[in-house]
Design a protein around this nucleic acid. Sequence first.
DNA 1: TGCCAGGCGGGGT
DNA 2: ACCCCGCATGGC
Length: 318
Amino acid sequence: MVKEAKLYDIFELEVSVEPYNFKLTAQAYNFSWWYNGRSLIIPLDNVLVKIKEHDKENTLVAEIYSHNNVEYNLDVIVEETAWTLGLHENLAEFYDKANRDPLLGKAAEKLRGYHVRTTSLWNALLIGVCQQNASFRQGWRMLYEIYRRLGQHVMIPGYGETLIPPQPKTIVEKGIEPLIEARTGYRAQTIYRIARFLEETPSLPREPWKLKQFLLEVKGIGEYTVRLSLVLSKRYYEEPPIDRWLKEIIIQVYGVDKSNVEEYYRRIWGKWAGLAALLTTIALDAETLRKALARIREGRTVPEEKDKPTPLTLWKYF
DNA sequence: TGCCAGGCGGGGT
DNA sequence: ACCCCGCATGGC
């Protein structure tokens, strides 16, 4: 039985940073539950926020929905929505730098204005774990199966079916079996441990570097997963998530020795390293390493039209 | 059909 | 600070 959400409130948001591209921000690494080509759904703690572009330039219109009677503070919802979309984040310096980069130069033009659309730390960790030792497509399928089985399906008028993603509490209650059924393999144990850890830890450190040390205590969370999760949930870009895939790309593109990859990458990107890493996956359609390297050699370093899911078209398939 | 994929931990040296 | 292996699963 799928519940229907009701409209509670409407507000507008001004896009005051330049560059900013709503479409790219909304569609990248998203599922059809939360993006349909026009509207973006952001599931917040108690409500669902539906956002689309206004006829007026640099303006977004947002509607607040809920499937049960909730109390909420409008100011808090507005602030959380603006944070999720990165409406106060100025990436002009990043895109200017990226324009001059041999790998990201072309993509920086096409994707200019893309911002990280943040998600909760818990969701970000889930994304990271599903990417472990799997292809992009396998990882996102796992995530899709987890959400589909354990999330709460809700109808939004004028949108269709959306989903409130499962919280750690749900995972703890239902145990690892649904995670195994979602074909997560040995990652199921890690996901379960993360859920229990977050349930049992009442307050986490605010500073990213300290938070990182906490999270690394959980068996199954390593450097890559924790860094990616901090990029996706906190916009903490200082420490780039470099996996086997990006490492080999860096070695070949910049001609650095394998022992200096991270040091080099952090030197050229500075405080934008994590964002550059993420943009690289979008630029190359998250192709597996062999194909990604071939595309770089051919100079095809911008997203292409595909008949299969890519970071920008995931929402058309799942 | 055995590899291998956007990792990780545990074990070695 | 390295190197190596096993690990669920799915796709060549």
